[in-house]
Design a protein around this nucleic acid. Structure first.
Length: 591
RNA sequence: CGGGGCGUAGCUCAGCUUGGUAGAGCGCUCGCUUUGGGAGCGAGAAGUCGCAGGUUCGAAUCCUGUCGCCCCGACCA
């Protein structure tokens, strides 16, 4: 059936909605694809649902090709399984919780590891049943602190989540690879550029984790990539560790007066004025900055830890979170300093040959960890733990030691990739997919075991694979538009062709109707703007806003037996005889 | 949770400083005209000015409180 605009449930807005900032949000609302219901919660109108269904269909086809079977879980789940895996607590405020009439706790699932694991446990008990991959396309709920950017970060969103079950590590690797390959095909079909980056497995545990990031300025993640193949989320980036240097022959450390030098820059200025170095001036990279962080451990205890890193580097709190996981990390507060009078703010240093200040063996007893660049034999200007004094020539491994090495320094443009593939560039990306090996965490917690070939019970190992469906839709919209409106790629467009009848001549409407019917007959989904008494300008504007890639204008040319084919993306219009419309569009078709 | 902005018709907004009968454009309804780039004329329907209290003869406007929304940051498997 041809969809006729005169009675289709679609209303475009002439002006941008006032609450939308990012392009995809603005255009999807204005063109009548979605409507806001609550912060981060959207209703899908018929035309929006069509695009969503197209994306889901592509995912379903590729999941089937990868051997995964579709299931469907409730969004509403009881508390107990999440209690067992501790996620009822760990998920914190981001979990939507509710009660039934008896007061029992329920949640709106933010993801479904527990439900899937328990279902497989219910039904399977033998290694012969494995491997198994199952997936669903389901709405997920997360009570985000701040939903934003329309569909890009909502509180309700549609996600494809797949889970694999194996009883060997090799099996998990194969299942993981199958999903990873399927993801590549899915994103290619969706026309979404992606970069696969190493990701931090984080609190989810597991050994291998990769994110599919779509490079875009509206992205929330920062990632790095080299020109020769390396790509990683900044959280997962590892520093190339320099060789240790010989200690012999290095001059003794000297304490100097450096009044009014609470910051690295003031210190460098004073150092160059009072103790200039032969050859080249001191820079921030010659100083050792000691940053005080406060960790909050899972049991609620607060611990101070001091990170020593080159003065030209800043601490990246997200990287620090990874380094100190599962503890939460924040900068130390004035209160923290007050509790540790041994710490002289602005002049903190590890100590010197006369005695250590930082570290578990130091006078403060505060854990002291170093950036990987601070290898043995490197010499530093750093705080002397006295107001207005710094130590010059303090040598790592000779004058001080630390309790460990951690990656907390912010990654910079030009840093060397750990795989030797050259300097990295920083870019913004939006996570559109995530594959990771959960391992046995959930199976262990929930008791999912099978009997192996030897009749022994073994714990199943799992993988988890997600694609944000509605986020992918928004990202496609974000990357396919112009000042007039959306421009859908053919394989996710809500319709294959958009027929416009202009004018008021009955013959035009009859001809347009014929064109629409002919296209439908050829297998096209057609949206036909048959609205009477609507001016051509309005119809053209709506067509551009809605963004169906192929438009057929039926109007003044009808008398001569021709119509115009209008390519939404290129803007090109060509006249063709009415009888050839179907043929011409088919010739242009790329899918 | 911190910072900023905003709540007035379906939408986008003016009015608030300086209190005095609720406004515009678009959209919607009816009639006539118009029909290749968001038409014209005429007639209409449509609002608890977020909510609650207060000041005042009188509050969209001033005061207090409160709720909500948007943006930036923190947070974000």
């Amino acid at each position: 059936m041809v969809t006729r605009l005169s009675n289709y449930f679609l209303r475009t807005l002439r002006e941008d909605p006032s609450d939308a900032e990012v392009t995809s949000h603005r255009l999807l609302v204005r063109a009548g694809y979605i409507r806001r219901q609550a912060p981060g919660v959207f209703a899908w109108l018929p035309i929006g649902l069509r695009v969503k269904n197209k994306i889901e269909q592509i995912i379903r086809e590729e999941m089937a090709a990868a051997g995964a079977h579709e299931v469907h879980f409730p969004a509403l789940l009881p508390r107990e399984p999440y209690e067992i895996t501790n996620r009822w607590t760990e998920y914190g405020d981001a979990l939507f919780r509710l009660h039934d009439r008896k007061g029992a706790d329920y949640l709106l699932a933010p993801t479904h590891e527990e439900a899937f694991t328990l279902l497989v446990k219910d039904l399977y008990g033998s290694y012969k049943d494995l491997p198994l991959s199952i997936f669903q396309i389901q709405d997920k709920y997360r009570d985000e602190a701040r939903p934003r950017a329309g569909l890009l970060r909502g509180r309700e969103f549609t996600m494809k989540d797949a889970y694999s079950f194996d009883y060997t590590d090799a099996g998990l690797d194969a299942s993981y690879q199958a999903q990873r390959d399927a993801y590549e095909r899915i994103f290619q079909r969706l026309g979404l550029e992606y970069v696969i980056v190493k990701a931090d497995a984080g609190a989810m545990g597991g050994s291998r984790s990769e994110e599919f990031l779509h490079p875009t300025p509206v992205g929330e993640d920062t990632f790095v990539r080299s020109d020769h193949g390396y790509a990683a989320n900044v959280e997962a980036f590892t520093t190339v560790v320099p060789e240790a240097l010989p200690i012999e022959g290095l001059p003794e450390a000297v304490v100097r007066d450096t009044p009014d030098t609470p910051t690295i820059q003031t210190l460098v200025d004073v150092a160059n004025a009072q103790a200039p170095r032969d050859g080249e001036p001191w820079t921030a990279a010659d100083t050792l900055k000691n940053v005080v962080l406060a960790l909050t451990h899972l049991d609620g205890t607060r611990e101070l830890v001091i990170v020593g890193l080159p003065g030209d580097r800043d601490v990246d709190l997200k990287r620090a979170e990874v380094a100190f996981a599962p503890a939460e990390v924040e900068a130390a507060t004035a209160e923290d300093f007050a509790k540790h009078p041994g710490l002289v703010k602005g002049y903190i240093g590890p100590g010197d040959q006369r005695g250590l200040v930082l570290g578990e063996n130091g006078s403060t007893g505060i854990r002291y960890v170093l950036d990987p660049r601070v290898v043995d034999g490197t010499s530093w200007i750093t705080g002397a733990n006295v107001e207005g004094k710094h130590v010059f020539g303090l040598v790592a491994g000779r004058d001080f030691t630390a309790d460990g090495v951690v990656e907390t320094a912010a990654v910079r443009e030009g840093d060397e990739a750990p795989d030797g593939s050259g300097p990295v560039h920083l870019a913004r990306g939006m996570e559109i997919g995530h594959v990771f090996q959960l391992g046995r965490k959930y199976a262990e917690a929930l008791g999912l075991k099978v009997l192996d070939e030897n009749g022994k019970l073994v714990t199943v190992t799992m993988g988890s694979y997600g694609i944000g469906v509605t986020r992918a839709l928004a990202i496609i919209a974000e990357g396919n538009n112009d000042e007039k409106g959306l421009i859908w790629p053919e394989n996710v467009a809500p319709f294959d062709a958009y027929v416009i009848a202009t004018g008021r001549d009955q013959a035009v409407f009859e001809a347009a109707d014929g064109v629409a019917q002919a296209l439908e007959g050829a297998g096209y989904d057609v949206l036909y703007d048959n609205r009477p008494k609507v001016s051509p300008g309005v119809k053209f504007g709506d067509a551009e806003l809605i963004g169906v890639p192929k438009i057929v204008i039926v109007g003044r040319g009808v008398a001569d037996g021709v119509v115009e084919l209008w390519d939404r993306r290129s803007g090109e219009r060509t006249e063709v005889p009415i009888a050839e419309v179907v043929e011409r569009l088919q010739a242009q078709r790329t899918i």
